[in-house]
């Protein structure tokens, strides 16, 4: 995302009296990190940022950390900043009645991609001490203690952004900045899924075994996901019935990731948070992208586009086609 910090602050200042709080981002502990930020008072507004480091999908807080369904007594709304991908999660949450459309004020931010901190660390000669990170046009400029590195933005942005089809928020009450051109057409094939599918069955199994073997069961992927809404009732943690043992072996890891993905079938909006937060770098979003491709092919449905639509796996239609 191009830097929209000033425009965002200006806008929020103008409407803040009508809002209970605003979910946004603020700078993190170093120039490569950003953290979600709850703007609760007027004086907080100048801490807000919106740029290529605005990674986190803030809609998860609407579903999991607050009541975004019932109207406030004073009628004030919850402001939430969304990128294109985040806005789709919001739509899915509205469909599933975790969020009321009337309860939220949606600040849409067209986005050309967010950075992948791991890629940047691999690209710059001195990743330990990064002083500043700035996107200038199609170039990323990273300043470290040893000097300035410049490289194409595309080499530094997240995998999900390279195949982005919805860079512009699909719902919003205000749009900050001009809409941007999607990288891929709506019905384009997912290139990451295609790359894994090109492998032989044996190699594909090996690929996933190598990847999932690293899982440490921290559940960051689950907890960052805006649509993993079971919270403290997840099958990974319930003891009665005990679906999953405490073994850290492939069976249990595989089981967890498959259940996670299947529970998101027709719901996952490909915001990529599960993959970004994984501390051991497993491309977990790929599993969900494959399932989404199947849903699109069989049921002609794409999640998180139309707040009025009913996700196909949350309903039953005798006229269902494609199966």
């Amino acid at each position: 995302m191009d830097d929209k910090t000033n425009a965002l602050r200006e806008h929020v200042k103008g409407i803040f009296s009508n809002l209970e709080l605003v979910l946004g981002w603020e700078p993190g502990y170093d120039p490569l990190h950003t953290r979600p930020f709850y703007v609760r008072t007027e004086s907080d507004i100048d801490r807000l940022t919106a740029n290529c480091l605005s990674f986190q999908n803030l809609t998860r807080y609407l579903a999991k950390s607050m009541n975004a369904v019932d109207p406030a007594a004073d009628g004030r709304k919850i402001g939430v900043c969304v990128k294109g991908c985040d806005s789709r999660s919001l739509v899915a949450l509205i469909q599933e009645k975790f969020v009321s459309r009337d309860r939220v004020y949606v600040i849409g931010l067209p986005c050309r991609g967010t950075l992948d901190a791991r890629r940047i660390r691999a690209l710059v000669p001195d990743p330990a001490r990064i002083r500043s990170v700035n996107a200038e046009g199609d170039e990323l400029v990273v300043e470290t203690d040893r000097g300035i590195s410049r490289f194409a933005l595309d080499r530094a942005i997240a995998r999900k952004c390279l195949q982005c089809r919805y860079p512009n928020p699909v719902i919003h009450d205000v749009l900050i900045g001009d809409p941007v051109t999607p990288r891929l057409k709506i019905d384009a094939e997912n290139p990451s899924v295609a790359a894994v599918e090109a492998l032989s069955l044996e190699d594909r199994l090996l690929f996933w075994e190598n990847q999932l073997d690293r899982c440490i069961r921290c559940f960051a992927c689950r907890n960052a996901c805006p649509l993993c809404v079971c919270q403290n009732h997840c099958i990974m943690e319930t003891r009665m019935p005990k679906w999953i043992t405490q073994y850290r072996n492939m069976n249990e890891k595989f089981m967890f990731h498959m259940i996670h993905a299947l529970h998101l079938a027709g719901r996952c909006t490909e915001c990529g948070e599960c993959e970004r937060v994984c501390p051991v770098g497993i491309p977990v979003a790929l599993i969900k992208e494959k399932i989404n491709a199947i849903i699109y092919e069989m049921l002609d449905y794409e999640s998180g586009i139309d707040p009025e639509a009913v996700p196909p796996l949350l309903t039953f239609s005798p006229k269902e086609t494609g199966i």
Partner: peptide, 13 residues
């Protein structure tokens, strides 16, 4: 703690 997503990364690492 508002931003915390209550995953276990910090304790695991």
């Amino acid at each position: 703690v508002s931003p915390c997503i209550t995953c276990g990364v910090c304790t695991w690492v």
